[in-house]
Computed example of a mutant assay.
Amino acid sequence: MPRPGYSAISSFSRVRILHLLQESPQRTISDLCEITGLHPNTVREHVQRLIDGGYVVPEVEKRTTRGRPRVLYSAADGVQDWSPIAARKARDAAERGDLMRRVMPWTDDHALENDAVHQLDALVEDLGDAGFDPVVDQHQLTVDLSPCPHAGTESGNRSVLCAVHLNLMDGVLAQARGPLRVEGMAPSCNPHDCVVHLTR
């Protein structure tokens, strides 16, 4: 069974912070400290790891009055909040995918157009970095994540993890620029049988 990787989202505290930013963007470090109860230095470190991973984007507040502008943080969704780091990761994944398909042409089943295939390249790499072992069906537009490496997580935290991962997957697809988006999880989804449906 794959183990969660040491990635930007390998810590539940970071997952929780990312969940807060996905639900309500443009939060400050103080906002996040107040909600999580974590020390400001800890929150700053977590947020920086999320920025470095391409999952969060900072923006300096535009002030019309005197005073030092605040830094506002939002989850990178590839639409309103765009991360240059995530965009670079998507480009690099597409290049590696193209190289693999040239070297091993039998891996390309020609089910999708290039921009959609490149989206899947980015998605597979991102999920792999997070400890998943995704199996993509280009014809059915599904991503099988079974078994989830986070299956042992407390059931109370599992809904947050699932929501964050679905939003991250959708953000990766959006950053990679193509027709595919996340539609949702299969109705029977559980930690040991997890299938995500994509849509055009």
Rank of each mutant, 00 (worst) to 15 (best):
D81I: 12
A87F: 11
E34C: 11
C189I: 11
P105Y: 02
D133V: 13
I29R: 01
V164S: 02
G37M: 03
A174Q: 10
M185R: 09
V124G: 07
R16F: 13
S159P: 09
H39E: 12
E23F: 07
D98G: 09
N41Q: 12
Q140Y: 05
A76N: 06
W106A: 14
H192M: 15
C194Q: 06
R88Q: 15
L72R: 04
G5S: 10
R101E: 07
V15K: 04
G131W: 03
P40S: 12
D170M: 03
V143L: 02
P25Y: 03
F12R: 06
V47F: 01
A116D: 04
D133H: 11
P134W: 01
T42A: 11
V164F: 03
I9P: 02
N114W: 06
V160C: 04
G97Y: 00
R158N: 09
V164D: 00
L20K: 05
V43N: 00
C33N: 02
E34T: 14
L173S: 02
P191M: 06
E61G: 03
V160I: 14
D109K: 07
P147S: 06
W82P: 07
D31G: 04
Q48C: 10
T42C: 06
R49Q: 15
V79M: 11
I51C: 09
T42K: 06
I85L: 13
L168Q: 08
V57K: 00
D92P: 06
L50V: 08
L20M: 12
T28S: 09
A8N: 07
T36Q: 00
V56H: 01
A111Y: 05
I35H: 05
A93W: 03
L141P: 02
R70G: 05
L123S: 04
T65Q: 11
P40E: 08
H197G: 08
E154A: 14
V135T: 13
H139D: 10
Q26P: 09
T28C: 04
E113A: 13
A176N: 04
E113W: 08
L161Y: 06
V160G: 01
L123M: 11
T36S: 06
A163Q: 12
P147M: 04
N167Y: 08
R3V: 15
G37W: 04
D129H: 15
A122D: 05
Q138W: 05
R96K: 13
W106I: 13
G37K: 02
D31A: 05
A86P: 05
T142H: 00
N190F: 11
D126A: 15
V172W: 03
A86Q: 07
G53N: 03
G37Q: 01
R88W: 12
V43Y: 00
C162G: 10
V182K: 00
N114H: 09
A116N: 03
H118S: 09
D98C: 08
D115F: 11
L127K: 01
K89A: 15
P2A: 15
G131Y: 03
Q119D: 03
A163G: 10
M104Y: 10
L198T: 04
R88A: 15
P84M: 14
D92T: 14
L127T: 03
R49C: 13
R49G: 14
C194S: 09
R181Q: 13
V56I: 07
A8P: 08
D77T: 05
A174Y: 05
L161K: 05
L32C: 07
M185N: 07
A186T: 09
R16L: 12
R44K: 14
R158P: 07
I29P: 00
M185L: 13
V117R: 10
A94V: 06
M100G: 09
V103Q: 10
